[in-house]
Design a binder for these strands. Structure first.
Length: 889
RNA sequence: GCGCUCGUAGCUCAGUUGGUUAGAGUACUACCUUGACAUGGUAGGGGUCACAGGUUCGAGUCCUGUCGGGCGCACCA
């Protein structure tokens, strides 16, 4: 096979890697810091450095690459900046798990040794996801790749921390936080998921001091009573008002604790008495502060009970609960238990029940940062696509809470705070301090904690561009043009980028936020390892090709809704790739003799089909440009799909076959140019969607430039000269033939006339214009409808014939196929009957409309006119059908 | 509880200022291996646009309610 000959099936395996190398070798992905072209910038949401690509990434990346390639082809200095995230918690978990297999524990190794292991792990697996992105076709500027723990990014992180601290927007304090007892770290509110579970509500008797009475408290977490420092009732609760100020004796531990009153208590729930555990419950914490209650912490960091729990020390929460209940029952203090639906907070990462835990943590005071971040979205300066996500964003921003940013982990940005061992002063500094700036002691100890991963992610749009230095990159590409991400991280990430961007980079981080849905399995379930329903995009790429996967994702992503992934659909788009391949194969075979073709086409010499395909191309280009501009990705993809398959392959290629196989060299030369030119534009139009196959085929075309990836994206603007060759009138004329052929096919199909059976046809029309068009184009009918005898005229006989009436603009024609001796007439009678019924029904509807006074009075004149014309047509049609039916009987 | 969102063909979904006969892919049926492609071609069947009201000359589209999914946020111990 010579290089110009294509196999009859598209084999993505031979095409994809090869073309990726070609692009890389020629530096096509590189964006310039200084350029005369307008900038377009898009920062990749950094995937976890040790992760591997899943379908969600694939969707995310493909959308980004689509816009990058489109903008690059549209003359922009397009930057797609890649990077990876250190992903504190998940990476640490993965490595810990791995070490455990070797019998090694994190704490046994110690911080330094453990971090060495994580870095080793990162070096080994850190590029895996990057390689996977390349498989997908990402045209990212890999020379600029960033990692969240890179020196310059870390410097940005420190700068931000220190300046927020100096502004008083970062503070340290002892607070009740969400505690993951497996990881032994605090986690933020966002990292906690609330699961509804069946639980039990236990009613426990607390003896009132000096009385033979009890206060009954209800609780779902009885073990927390070990940390109780009060019981609380509503101040106006008549049942208990008399007891306020007295004490109860805490069962099991015998501690005396006060009975207090607070409006918070709901008198109607349970017994109306609430036990107060200020160190282990968020509501109790608030009340505890109001009433200056004692805070007794009963937990160790690993979730076991500490010495404050007395005899229960050392037990984990669940065993302690069991024991506490047993002991209470033994003492007759367990009044009753009842089933209770409760919401349990669960750590997103480990699935452990989150315990509220009192500890020293760092927080960002968020309200001052949130205000401008709300404003830019309210004012439309930052635009969410689809718009509805702006509501979600604003709702959260309006209820935002201070952000706990410290994590008791080792892997991450260590908090740049040092404690003076001598004077207890806290030094917060960008550079590692050598001495306490208060007492000059050299006895400094750095805070052990690291920052929440999202702290560094929040700076990503500018830390990746060299900020805080005013680099050329930063000046050129900030604010970025577009951010593409899933709705699951609007709060985690998008909100924080907006807050930080405004505060530090002094401008919004991006103009548009494209929010796509999450990918679910074909049944709509979340893809997860435990369900085993995950689809590995790399398997799909291997099997169907990256382009097919990309097109599947892009054609499915609409209006920000979640999307169900089906392999069936992927198969369909794999077939589309094959279709494109074979259409080009056909073209190239027929263009063999045209080694180089020039672009200029001569409207006078073009066939009707040439005029028609160019006019369709023009419409397609206009639509696609419009759709991409308004981020309507699936519409753009589907428009191209149907143009290529339905218009170009099904009609145009069939129409030009007689020309390409014929002897009319003059005509053939012209059509060759149109064919090659159209194909060239098809490749360019499709390239951002399916880069591999389009580059491969583009390179084989007789009309081409350097590379598809850097050729211009065709629009009705920049392609005006070529598109203007299409004569509207002639394009329209082709529709006449197309309609007639469709009618013939319909007659054939419904009457079961075998495709091999040649038929005689009569095209009957009073229109001289149609008559001329049909006469000129008899060959099209011969080839495309297997027509033998051909008669054109007016008032041609339709006896014992199938008939279809066609209306084209003002002109009408009857497509007549004599059936006598060919087939039984029953099928045609049935077909006409069906058409007749439909037409009659339509007449009824239209007639009703037109005889409605209010319609005639209120509807705009053009609508009324259309309806009138329609009625006329329908009436005529029914007459013709009825006559035809008569002649069949 | 508050907020958002969806309900269109067997399945997956389009349907953007309300306006001809509600579309596509897939599945299904019939026919066809014709010199790009059977990962193909041609034709066909298939919908009370969840339901009930309302606005309007006109509603899949706008409004209200009901039913049924999904999601987010906050929750009574």
């Amino acid at each position: 096979m010579s290089t110009n000959e294509l196999s009859d099936r598209y084999n993505h395996l031979e095409v994809e890697d090869k073309n990726y190398l070609f692009w890389m070798k020629n530096n096509y992905f590189k964006a310039e810091d200084i350029s005369t072209k307008p900038p377009f910038s898009l920062i990749m949401p950094p995937p976890n450095v040790t992760g591997s690509l899943h379908l969600g990434h694939a969707l995310d990346q493909t959308i980004q690459d689509l816009f990058t390639r489109w903008k690059r082809m549209s003359g922009f200095n397009a930057l797609f900046l890649p990077g990876t995230d250190h992903a504190g918690i998940s990476t640490q978990l993965v490595v810990e798990k791995e070490l455990l297999k070797q019998g090694l524990k994190r704490r046994d190794l110690g911080r330094e040794k453990f971090l060495e292991k994580v870095w080793e792990w990162k070096e080994t697996y850190g590029n895996r996801i990057i390689e996977q992105c390349k498989k997908l076709g990402d045209s990212a500027d890999w020379g600029r790749i960033k990692f969240t723990l890179d020196d310059d990014v870390s410097a940005a992180v420190r700068k931000v921390f220190v300046s927020l601290y100096k502004e008083g927007l970062i503070y340290r304090g002892q607070r009740l936080v969400n505690w993951d007892t497996q990881l032994e770290t605090a986690v933020s509110d966002l990292e906690v998921e609330n699961e509804e579970r069946k639980g039990t509500l236990w009613h426990i008797k607390y003896p009132i001091e000096g009385m033979n009475e009890f206060m009954i408290v209800a609780t779902t977490r009885p073990e927390t009573m070990l940390g109780d420092t009060a019981v609380c009732v509503h101040p106006s609760d008549d049942r208990y008002r008399k007891h306020i100020g007295k004490n109860v004796v805490l069962p099991l531990l015998g501690r005396k604790i006060p009975i207090i009153a607070d409006e918070y208590v709901d008198q109607t729930f349970g017994s109306g008495v609430v036990k107060m555990t200020p160190a282990h419950d968020f509501n109790d914490y608030e009340i505890g502060k109001r009433h200056k209650l004692q805070f007794i912490n009963i937990l160790n960091t690993n979730g076991t009970l500490n010495s404050n729990a007395g005899p229960y020390q050392g037990l984990k929460v669940q065993p302690a609960r069991k024991k506490v209940l047993e002991d209470l029952a033994a003492q007759g203090l367990l009044e009753k238990e009842e089933p209770h639906k409760q919401v349990v907070p669960v750590s997103e990462r480990t699935g452990q029940v989150v315990e509220p835990y009192l500890s020293d943590q760092w927080f960002v005071a968020i309200h001052k940062l949130a205000r401008p971040a709300k404003h830019v979205v309210e004012s439309g300066t930052i635009e969410f696509i689809p718009e509805m996500w702006a509501k979600t964003y604003l709702h959260w921003m309006n209820n935002i809470q201070d952000w706990c940013i410290s994590r008791q982990l080792w892997w991450g940005h260590r908090i740049p705070a040092w404690y003076c061992e001598d004077c207890k002063h806290v030094v917060v500094s960008e550079k590692n301090p050598v001495e306490c700036d208060k007492c000059k002691s050299k006895n400094l100890k750095q805070d052990d904690d690291v920052l929440d991963t999202w702290f560094s992610s929040g700076l990503w749009p500018f830390s990746t561009l060299g900020w805080p230095e005013q680099t050329e990159s930063f000046k050129t590409f900030y604010p970025t043009s577009l951010m593409v991400t899933g709705h699951d991280i609007i709060f985690f990430w998008v909100a924080r980028m907006i807050m930080n961007g405004l505060h530090f980079a002094k401008d919004i981080p991006f103009r548009h936020v494209y929010i796509h849905g999450l990918i679910r399995d074909s049944q709509g379930r979340k893809m997860s390892k435990s369900l085993g329903n995950g689809v590995d995009p790399l398997d799909m790429i291997e099997k169907y090709g990256a382009d097919a996967l990309r097109f599947t994702l892009l054609s499915s992503v609409a209006s920000g809704k979640d999307l169900k992934f089906s392999e069936k659909r992927l198969e369909g788009y794999r077939n589309f790739m094959n279709k494109i391949w074979n259409a080009t194969r056909f073209a190239l075979t027929n263009l063999k003799e045209y080694k180089s073709l020039n672009e200029s086409i001569n409207p006078e010499a073009m066939s009707l089909a040439d005029h028609w395909i160019i006019s369709r191309l023009k419409e397609t280009q206009e639509q696609v440009d419009d759709y991409l501009d308004s981020h309507r990705i699936s519409e753009a993809a589907n428009t191209l799909y149907s143009f290529v398959w339905n218009d170009f392959c099904d009609w145009y290629l069939e129409f030009i076959k007689p020309i390409m196989y014929g002897d009319d060299i003059y005509q053939k030369n012209e059509t060759a140019k149109v064919l090659a030119g159209t194909l060239n534009r098809i490749m360019r139009l499709l390239h951002p969607f399916i880069p591999f196959i389009t580059e491969e085929l583009y390179q084989k075309l007789p009309i081409k430039n350097e590379a598809c990836i850097v050729d211009a994206y065709p629009t009705s603007e920049n392609d005006r000269v070529w598109l203007s060759a299409s004569d509207k009138e002639k394009a329209f004329e082709l529709n006449v033939i197309k309609e007639a052929i469709s009618a013939l096919r319909n007659i054939r199909g419904e009457n079961q006339i075998k495709p091999g059976q040649k038929i005689n046809i009569r095209l009957s029309t009073a229109s001289i214009r149609l008559n001329e068009i049909l006469t000129k184009n008899q060959s099209a009918f011969t080839k495309m409808a297997n027509v033998d005898g051909f008669e054109i005229g007016s008032n041609l006989s339709a006896t014992k014939s199938a008939l279809q009436l066609i209306q084209i603009g003002q002109d009408k024609m009857s497509v007549i196929v004599p059936l006598e001796g060919l087939v039984d007439l029953g099928a045609e009678i049935a077909r006409l009957q069906k058409n007749l019924e439909k037409a009659q029904k339509d007449i009824e509807i239209t007639h009703k409309k037109l005889s409605d006074d209010s319609f005639m009075k209120n509807a705009p004149p053009d609508i009324v006119e259309t309806e009138k014309a329609r009625l006329e047509q329908l009436v005529e049609q029914t007459q013709t059908i009825q006559e035809s039916l008569e002649r069949l009987k």
